[in-house]
């Protein structure tokens, strides 16, 4: 019981603290790769604290939904994170939900984020909401199909169980179904976290922005929650990718301290490697036109469908 509590508190803290650092790292590396100096990786912490201290301006047109949304966005990201195994395999809230609950919670956060964008009557907000819901709608089937593929191979929608079953036969990670599902999920990750071929996290230019447009009217501590929630969501999705689709080194249920240490190291290494790939993709690609994004996501969907076909054949 105590261990469970420790696990819960530990993972909550890890999610809260690691997420901004990861966003910071990606920003920093991207700048380095583009020959700029860039902000230090821990700058995001300072940003959040600064947002928290600042006064808040709320639009005169906004209703109660506007103030309700930041809490939902933040809490759903955190709850979803507690269902994904990070360092040891049974995630703290594994009993309360698996893959479907994670996807559902993230969708709930997005729902309120989009409502928060519409509420202050700003055109930018409406545009952001519209685009966000569109892109997530076409990314969702690809994501589900990719997750289904691993769930079917593992025989469960329980994330911890999926991670453990793929882990017990490491060489199976090379199995085409797995590789294809991983690829599809990576594309979805780019779309869901608002990364470059789909959205540009660095600008406030109305032609490109999706996520930032929805946050335009948020300020002060609500903005802090929104930004923090977004970075936690990014961490959750990346954790899902590295630990469920590629669970090398993940510690099991009754792991020793040493095993946990190895697991933590492996987790961080995988996370940084994935971030590096994201950075390279962001730097080498141009932002796509909005109506070209479906091409990308349909490719992801077909990849996931092929992954499914492969489970059917190569077993």
């Amino acid at each position: 019981m105590n261990l469970d509590l420790l696990n819960f508190v530990g993972q909550t803290l890890a999610l809260l603290l690691l997420a901004p650092l990861l966003s910071g790292c990606i920003k920093n590396w991207k700048a380095k790769l583009q020959n700029r100096r860039g902000p230090r990786p821990w700058q995001v912490y300072f940003d959040i604290v600064k947002f928290l201290r600042k006064d808040m301006v709320i639009s005169e047109h906004a209703s109660w939904v506007f103030s309700f949304a930041p809490y939902v966005v933040f809490l759903t990201a955190l709850l979803a994170g507690l269902m994904v195994p990070m360092v040891n395999a049974p995630a703290p809230l594994r009993l309360f939900g698996g893959v479907l609950a994670v996807v559902g919670l993230l969708a709930l956060g997005r729902f309120f984020l989009a409502l928060g964008g519409l509420d202050p009557a700003s055109t930018f907000g409406g545009m952001g909401s519209s685009r966000e819901m569109t892109i997530s709608a076409i990314a969702e089937p690809a994501m589900m199909l990719a997750i289904f593929t691993v769930a079917i191979t593992a025989g469960s929608t329980d994330l911890s169980q999926i991670a453990q079953s793929t882990q017990s036969a490491t060489w199976k990670l090379l199995n085409p179904a797995h590789v294809l599902a991983f690829a599809a999920m990576f594309v979805v990750l780019l779309a869901e976290t608002g990364r470059i071929p789909v959205d540009n996290p660095a600008t406030h230019l109305e032609l490109t922005m999706i996520h930032e447009a929805m946050l335009l009217e948020y300020s002060g501590r609500y903005l802090a929650l929104m930004e923090w929630g977004a970075s936690i969501k990014q961490l959750v999705l990346m954790t899902l990718l590295v630990n469920v689709f590629f669970p090398v080194g993940l510690a099991g249920p009754q792991a020793s301290v040493a095993a946990l240490g190895i697991s933590l190291a492996a987790y961080l290494a995988k996370l940084l490697a994935l971030s590096a790939v994201v950075v390279v993709v962001e730097t080498t690609n141009a932002k796509m036109r909005l109506f070209r994004v479906p091409d990308l996501l349909s490719t992801a969907f077909v990849l996931a469908a092929l992954a499914l076909l492969s489970t059917f054949l190569f077993q």
Partner: peptide, 30 residues
């Protein structure tokens, strides 16, 4: 975890590469 035999690795690698060929084909279409 049992160490995979070489033949097993081979039978993993070939479908993987074949599937990647198909993936490349799809990219070619897009």
């Amino acid at each position: 975890m049992h160490p995979p035999s070489t033949l097993e690795v081979g039978s993993q690698i070939i479908p993987l590469m074949a599937t990647l060929m198909l993936v490349v084909q799809l990219l070619l279409i897009a």
